[in-house]
Amino acid sequence: MVNTLLFISAIIILLAILLTLYRFIKGPTAPDRLVAFDVMTVSSLALIGLIAKFSSRIIYLDVAIVYGLLSFLGVIIVSRYFERGL
């Protein structure tokens, strides 16, 4: 029961990532693509949590923390580059 629900959630998250991929490919300007990148990485953070549950290893969550930190940093770097603040 629980596992089935989690499987369905993982598949929904994958669909969400594919939808953001559409925005990444199409998105007329570079900032649009950056938003898609942001949403994509935050969604994958949830996916990593689910992978950790499927493998039942708590140590995978360390990776999730690094991942969250780095996606935040990436968005800020590119934004600062856009507004000539680097």
């Binding site: 770097i77 603040g85 680097l86």
Partner: peptide, 9 residues
């Protein structure tokens, strides 16, 4: 090093 980058940004 990433922390340092955030500081510099």
């Amino acid at each position: 090093a990433s922390g340092l980058v955030l500081m510099l940004l």
